[in-house]
């Protein structure tokens, strides 16, 4: 006898949240119609959808700009964050000297320093990338550093007893041990890179050919094109989810065969 779909875990995982979403959208649509809410106060989901189609070209261009900044900033954060973490575990002195500044960078609100960065940087795109990097880099640094230090002490003893070089300990022991932490950092950081790109663009208010989704939201607000504002917001959310899903997929690729966190999925 074929098991009913409800017992399929994967199906439930997709179906249950999807139903919540559909239900929420239906309620929203019904509320807008029932109380005759004006579109400039709260547009209906259908109106947002129509606007998405009508402004497809403009929105896609804005999405492309935001996505480019996000991805570049994220990659820079990954490369520099991992490099800094590697540096930190090589020498206690370097870590002690630099780590407080990593924290300062993390706790300073990017909105507050974005105007300065925009003044200092040569062009706005660079400024936006810098802002996004500042927000996205910390989880990578802190997670990877912790991972590189979380080595089974007995395995470390084994490596030492076999006279492993510093390089061998790094590549064969520290880096593989750090992978689960690193991928945890990636998940957080990918979302933060997007937030950084959007927030910085809000501050910069870049218009014209380089207008991203944040500017699209600002401009739609000024001109009371609220459905388009929602459409842009929807695209930002979608981008965030896509980035997160990509990170989940990457981490599954790297860890699923051996790491404990993937064990229950196989049974």
């Amino acid at each position: 006898m074929k098991a009913p779909l409800v017992h399929n875990e994967r199906f439930v995982q997709i179906f249950a949240p999807l139903m919540v979403g559909v239900f929420a959208l239906v309620c929203w649509q019904a509320a807008v119609v029932a109380w005759d809410i004006k579109p400039y106060v709260l547009p209906s989901p259908l109106a947002v959808g129509v606007s998405l189609i009508e402004n497809f070209g403009v929105l896609m261009h804005a999405l492309y700009i935001t996505l480019t900044i996000t991805v570049i900033a994220f990659l820079i954060a990954v490369v520099f964050g991992s490099a800094l973490a590697l540096l930190f575990v090589q020498s206690k002195w370097i870590e002690i000297s630099l780590f407080p500044y990593a924290i300062i960078m993390q706790v300073t609100p990017v909105v507050a320093i974005a105007p300065l960065i925009i003044i200092w940087a040569d062009d706005t795109t660079t400024a936006l990338i810098i802002c996004a990097v500042i927000i996205a880099i910390f989880p990578i640094i802190s997670n990877t550093t912790m991972g590189l230090r979380s080595v089974d002490p007995n395995l470390m003893n084994l490596f030492r007893m076999n006279r492993a070089s510093r390089w061998q300990i790094l590549t064969r022991l520290r880096i593989p041990s750090a992978l689960p932490y690193f991928f945890g950092g990636l998940r957080i950081s990918s979302g933060l890179a997007l937030i950084g790109a959007v927030v910085a663009e809000f501050v910069a208010g870049t218009g014209g050919a380089k207008a991203g989704l944040a500017y699209m939201i600002l401009q739609s607000g000024y001109t009371l094109q609220i459905p388009r504002m929602f459409a842009a917001l929807f695209l930002i959310t979608l981008t965030g989810i896509a980035l997160f899903a990509l990170m989940v997929w990457l981490s599954r690729l790297a860890l699923a065969s051996w790491h404990e966190s993937y064990l229950e999925n196989e049974q």
Binding site: L155, N157, L158, R172, P176, L179, W258
Partner: peptide, 10 residues
Amino acid sequence: FQSPTLMPWA
């Protein structure tokens, strides 16, 4: 060692 001390990723 007391525990198997294997590299889980290998």
